[in-house]
Design a protein around this nucleic acid. Sequence first.
RNA 1: GCCCGAGUGGCGGAAUGGUAGACGCAGGGGAUUCAAAAUCCCCCGAUGGCAACAUCGUGUGGGUUCGAGUCCCACCUCGGGCACCA
Length: 853
Amino acid sequence: MSGYQASEIEAKWQEAWDAAGLFRAERVEGKPKYYVLEMFPYPSGKLHIGHVRNYTMGDVIARYKLATGHNVLHPMGFDAFGMPAENAAMASGGHPKDWTYGNIDTMVEQMKPLGLSLDWSRMFATCDPEYYGQQQALFLDFLEEGLVYRKNAVVNWDPVDMTVLANEQVENGRGWRSGAVVERKELTQWFFNISSMADELLEALDGLDNWPAKVRLMQENWIGKSRGLQFDFERMDGGEPITVYTTRPDTLNGASFVGISPDHPIAKGLEGDPEVDAFLAEARKGGTTEEAIEKAEKLGYDTGIKVKHPLTGAELPVWIANFILMDYGTGAIFACPAHDQRDLDFCRKYDLPVIDTFFALDVPQPVESEAFVPPKTEKVRWVDHFAGLDMATGEEAIDATIDFMEARGLGKGVTKFRLRDWGLSRQRYWGCPIPVVHCEACGVVPEKKENLPIELPYDEGAGPIDFSVPGNPLDRHPTWRDVDCPACGNPARRETDTMDTFVDSSWYFARFTAPRAETPTDMTEADYWMNVDQYIGGVEHAILHLLYARFFARAMHICGHLPEKSKEPFDALFTQGMVTHAIFQSEDAKGRPVYHYPEEVELRDGKAFLKEGGAEVEIIPSAKMSKSKNNVVDPVTIIEQYGADTARWFVLSDSPPERDVEWTAAGAEAAHKHLSRVWNLSGRICEMEDGAQGEGDAALLKEMHKTIHDVTMGIESFGFNAAIAKLYAFTNTVSKAKAGKAALREAVMTLAKLMSPMTPHLAEDIWAHQGGEGLCSAAPWPEADEAMLVDDEVVMPIQINGKRRAEISVPKDMDKAEVEKIALKHEAVQKALDGDAPKKVIVVPGRIVNVVA
RNA sequence: GCCCGAGUGGCGGAAUGGUAGACGCAGGGGAUUCAAAAUCCCCCGAUGGCAACAUCGUGUGGGUUCGAGUCCCACCUCGGGCACCA
């Protein structure tokens, strides 16, 4: 035997699985199904080791479920629309479509050698017209149900390039290409009415027991349900009252001004005044992200308008402030600087009054430069509170205030959500066209379904699809825009905006259940395969993607494309960490950083040296892989060097799956050595003489059952690293066991089966060598014998005052009193007690004894 | 700025509120070898001690508990998200 040759083994078994059609998913009524899905990749060009980890995790689950008798659906596709394809076209010419499909081919080619148990027959890319045509059909259905509508919203506007920018294209408030200061500009856009489901999406989080608590919490905060007070400020000049919404009505006494958004109708009404225009222009500078708005310098403009405080009758000025969002509440607030840091900074800057409305119980200090913002559950002392409160918490005061205002007809308790409607229009080429037509006579007209898909124009060669000029090529296309109105037949213009790529990824999981259907889904298939039993992906998608998909599933149910049970489409969610890698960095003569590829570097005693020249380089550990830092590990290289099983084993072995894992060459080497060890072990067992039982048979069997139990639990609970640790330990046990051939053969075949979800090729090879029946991948999962899991004797540590001082070995079932008696007789305990009686003795059966002296 | 996580030996990490450091890497010692590679065996948190053992030790500071890596409060550092990156 020549040793473990991964490349030969892996190709051979992949062919065998293919030939057996092992991973082809077909609906079998009555057979329990299991749908495993990893978030599908963006076709960036090359497979990343992070993908390998992600898909291996899903594969472990898929293969395990196959072995436990499930009909497994494990599909793969590509999230193929998006900006990088246009950026590539901008940088080096070519067409986004060619770039994208080229990348998909490469990535599929790189993915196949990993031996993933995927049903490749179901593969699609979201840029396939067959897919996005169905997405257009969904859009039309949503439109009919009132789930899509048009309104104005702000975008990042580059005033030099005259184009809309993505947040990513805004760097420090400036356009990435032009360098011009970005402005916030309003545009009419399409919106999904996700806020109409805000309460439902919030309530349903409670039912998602198999989602990480942190994701549910993040979504809860994002939806941001709040109860507050909505009320009017009368204008002294008799104009339309200003309606404000506040979540802190209890601080109404401390109001020092009323603030309105630069996009508020009153602010717009003042446009034309050069001073106002100048301020609004200034206030609209910068990007649209909440982060940019929060961090921007707080600016205000006194409109000169005065309003009357509804309770005190005091006159308050109305200011336009750049940090007030038109999208949240009513776009108008009252500011209470004493109890809000942002308001306080603003008031100090513009010399507005600061009025304390409550003080801490112990030291009543007036607010100076720091706002007093205690938790809403803390009792504070109120100053002349209108509802007659003296000592009360913020929560109590808020309720009392709302009651007080409602009773007098001055305001209304209102529940609002932070969640905004989902703007889906993108002024870009490489996305799903929005299937509507603008007609002068008929207005916005939906396309007829029989005209779908509305395909993107390809226009081979140079020409209309040109990215050397800023803006959307569809918008300047000479012919694509021109259509006849589907309603009246007169000349009209096609909508040139395309859909947000989040739309593409909001229903692909449903499409996988019937990827070639002539409608978005096939209800028979959807009813059988849905829901996704286990969804796996990065935490970075905790909010947007997962919330949008939840909305889409509900919307699809309303339109009859998904069953009721799929309103929550993902039964269980797991969020995995990234794969990181050290950066090897030195400096050039001018002190600029130079990054070295891992293969250029040699490691000795924890230090890194250049292979060429031998100079020492700095090691920066655990950095996110990035092309510009030269620390990307290419899975293809790893597979060529060690094989897919080694790569799979390594990415699962060291770190817990939800955390980042650091790729190290030493770790990969070690994983490969271990797999060789197992392979050799199997070989040695094959060559043994038949016959005699070994003295270690019973002990080996016992360890085997414990390992089955631990590994099974490990896989079920996503503790892959811990499961692998048990497999290491069991390998050591088997190789040291003084057992007969039959027992060893059973042990190593069990080891192979337990390893098969992680290292399926190696497992298959060992299975065949040991004469296993059929394919290892198709063999049933072993079951642990409960009787084998318990030891008759247990070692119990004895603590004295919480510190471990001794241990005793007692029968497993010995009762507490007996254990206590033995423990107290122990010399260490006797010594500690020094003749006194113990104050207390705690015996936790089978675990520990603690003597309090 | 706001929301959510994470922090344990030289390193990756293990540990239903119950013996902190399983398992792996690196390192040290030994066996084998003419020698090396490969392989196999043993040791391996810090400090003190020949040793038995003792003290300290899970980012920092407090707290709850017979007992805290685990629960609570405050803080520090790093990571994710902030609605047009996917």
